[in-house]
Nucleic acid binder design. Structure first.
Lengths: 339, 339
DNA sequence: CGCTATTACTTAACCGTTTCAGTGACATGA
DNA sequence: TCATGTCACTGAAACGGTTAAGTAATAGCG
């Protein structure tokens, strides 16, 4: 039951392949009589014809595919998302793409090979890159001559479209909120602090706030491991081991906050009674945990849809590079206590 | 900076396109001298040639693409995963595919069109379908003549490969566990009970357990809405409105358990003190919430990787249909109290 | 009426691969 | 010595579309 090809349709309708193509795409500046068009459409229906996008891509050099590269957060870990943030982002992007006749090609990033490969082999029309990567990897993208959108990537001189938030400000907001609530000994808990990554900026915001309040930043208050629930759980113990002088913690991602809550719980410590926590991202589960997490909210879905929109714009000839800094806000929930 | 094509490589190496192709694929039963092969490889390197997979697909009729269809759980909702289960599944599948030179093409399922489309237009080599769909939609897949793996789909007479768990048994285990802990008035909370879906089976297991214990199944103990945190939160209120006779609840997905915990919390009720809860799936956040969720554990990652493996096997000529029922087990955590 | 435009097509080249069917050159066996 | 086989390669068709260029018929215009 082989699929019908355009040739079959042409034969069935008694016209040439070109005519069929013109009808199906209603190509501008090509006139086709209504009767012929009708005949073609009828043949299409009869043969249950669907165009082969591969063939179309080959000749039109458009694949209607958008590549999405997501960091393999823990090296050596098998799975893509240790952070639900990515799932949220991905699902909104998928929807936006599908609405516009595009599909998403997914790739974890073991190295720059992964995205160079989907770009060059697969010929995706555009590529969305999430997270921080070594600058020289990103430079290679330049050779690609397809629209590139960087999400949550700080580069000195962005030649690509970019979407992000003011992570530094967010870090400051979170920390200032804690300070405002009377905390002066505040931990910073995060995964890897990558160069040019969001965590680095959030960390800077943390320092900004402390310095602004005349509080000294202490090395012993920094907990950096990997961005996972498990690590954050371990941090709770580490805190005690270090003598727990903190009354609060700012964590660079909600999932770390959840781990911390749980870790403390095991040690019979309570949030926010024994430690106040402010998170970051406001992933959907931030409101689900107990206590629910006071966190810096960002519109993750907007990140995904905007990324797709930038690609689409560029593809439709929109000139110039687009940049978007999405707004953030601190949402107060239950994980912070005034002292 | 156009990409080099096989033609350029051929010219550079002073051979024909065919020879280049043979060298690159080291086609069986085609002999090429070592010198020629070396010359070709050198030309490839020099021109930085990467084969165009679209063209390759066109002639070889293999796209090295696996389609993944995930239910758009809430109709009209914009996003793919209201249930973290899908993210977990997807990420493991992506990894397995990538390890084998395949990519995943993602599609939410608004109707059968979505997967028929990726199968026929995009020509994916295989397709993984997650969740329950109307039987007649699935029947259409038959026309596709590509390997199909159904994950978590109950069909009467599976002509496709299938992967699942014994959902009915799981439902029974969960419910019996509650009964064993002294509960006799047990709610069942779920999203949509779709025909042939996992929820229906879990529900049957729930009934099995109750009947086995001589407890009458009461309509008023069934709460069916949609599979979301918000719905489950609302259920808490609904329970009170109905006079809350339940001492325990079995929820068809962990996320519902989390919502229920939270909803009760708002009403100043505690889990497990005021209501014991058993979940299902053991998504990664089941252990993160407070209290952590006693739940029926299944190996979600294995579902994803096995699905990919089945596709791969079929593609490499493995005959016959494969079926796998993955083991489940009840993991005891903190959300159930003995009464 | 003759010339140019316009309409409604068709032809054929092309996109970048794979692969079947040759084709010489040389080696081998009878 | 000659048929036969193997080796190492080439030519060209095919995959299923798009699209530039060409053509025949009709319409419009002075």
């Amino acid at each position: 039951m082989k699929n019908a090809s355009i040739k079959d349709v042409a034969k069935e309708a008694g016209v040439s392949k070109a005519t069929v193509s013109y009808v199906l795409n209603d190509t501008p500046h090509q006139s086709i009589s209504e009767e012929t068009a009708a005949r073609v459409r009828e043949a299409v229906k009869k043969l249950d014809y669907v165009p082969n996008l591969n063939a179309r891509s080959l000749s039109s050099r458009k694949t209607k595919l958008i590549g999405v590269v997501i960091p393999q957060t823990e090296p050596g870990r098998e799975f893509l998302f240790s952070n639900p943030f990515y799932g949220d982002l991905l699902s909104s992007a998928e929807y936006a793409a599908r609405r516009n006749g595009y599909h998403l090609l997914l790739s974890g990033s073991e190295s720059n090979q992964s995205y160079m490969s989907i770009a060059r082999n697969r010929g995706v029309d555009g590529i969305i890159i999430v997270g921080a990567y070594p600058t020289k990897w990103l430079d290679e993208l330049h050779e690609l001559s397809i629209p590139v959108v960087l999400v949550d990537t700080y580069v000195k001189d962005p030649v690509y479209h970019t979407i992000g938030i003011n992570d530094r400000l967010g870090g400051r907001m979170a920390t200032e909120y804690l300070i405002k609530n009377g905390h002066r000994s505040i931990a910073f808990v995060c995964g890897q602090i990558e160069d040019q990554g969001v965590v680095q900026k959030r960390y800077q915001g943390y320092r900004d706030a402390l310095e602004g309040a005349g509080i000294k930043v202490k090395e012993e208050h920094i907990y950096s491991g990997n961005i996972s629930f498990e690590y954050a759980q371990a941090v709770a113990q580490e805190m005690l081991k270090r003598g727990k002088k903190e009354t609060a913690a700012f964590v660079s991602a909600d999932i770390l906050g959840m781990g911390l809550i749980k870790g403390l719980r095991r040690l019979n410590l309570r949030v926010p009674r024994d430690l106040s926590i402010v998170g970051f991202d406001d992933v959907y589960l931030a409101k689900m945990c107990d206590p629910s997490l006071t966190t810096v909210h960002q519109d993750i879905a907007a990140k995904g849809t905007t990324a797709v929109q930038f690609i689409l714009d560029a593809l439709s000839g929109e000139p110039g590079k687009q940049e978007k800094i999405l707004p953030i806000e601190l949402v107060e929930r239950e994980s912070v206590q005034k002292i």
